[in-house]
Amino acid sequence: MAAAPDPTSLKYLLSRLSRHPAFLGALIGILAAFSQSLLISAGGPEAYGFCVACHTRDLVNGMTNIITGASLALAPISKNAILPVMSVVGVIIGAFLSAKVHKEHKIKKTDYQEYLIYFIGGFVVLQLAMVFGGCPYRAALRTGYGDITALLFIIMMGLGVIAGTLLMLRKAEKEMN
């Protein structure tokens, strides 16, 4: 039997810390501000340090522009730089590495109907996020930067989640009966 980990050891503390969402939240907030102060000369917009929806848009449209010579709209920072922002590629690599290292990588397949629902879901969420100008993460960064519309977005998102949760509960109750 393995000995219980020493609660004061640095390794144990780091592993506890790395698994707490608040640690990552603090890290994204500080690093997003740092990356703006580092890279803003390449172009705006401000409060653009990390965003899954916008950075996916920049990545896909930027690469499409480079490969096919099209001129799809993207943020100035990605238009001016030699390559568009790569944070989404980083998230995929980082999450894959972590899943492999901790043996949590597992292929999960479902049916085609569900794939279609998720495809449409991703499509619609991106349209909505782009209309607002950011995913929930950029909304948080913008709120920190002092943007009142982003605060409204977060409040409405909370209401949307409450509505969705009630919907799920009602559906579960129906299935129980």
Binding site: P21, L39, A42, A81, S87, G90, G94
Partner: peptide
């Protein structure tokens, strides 16, 4: 910013990639 424009246009993909790897790793853990 801290970097001049000539440097920043090369740094953008690299810095955001490293930032993304860190965030992705910790997001998977938590």
């Amino acid at each position: 910013g801290i970097l001049s424009k000539e440097v920043a246009i090369y740094a953008v993909p690299l810095v955001t990639l490293l930032l993304g790897i860190l965030i992705g790793y910790l997001a998977q853990r938590s």
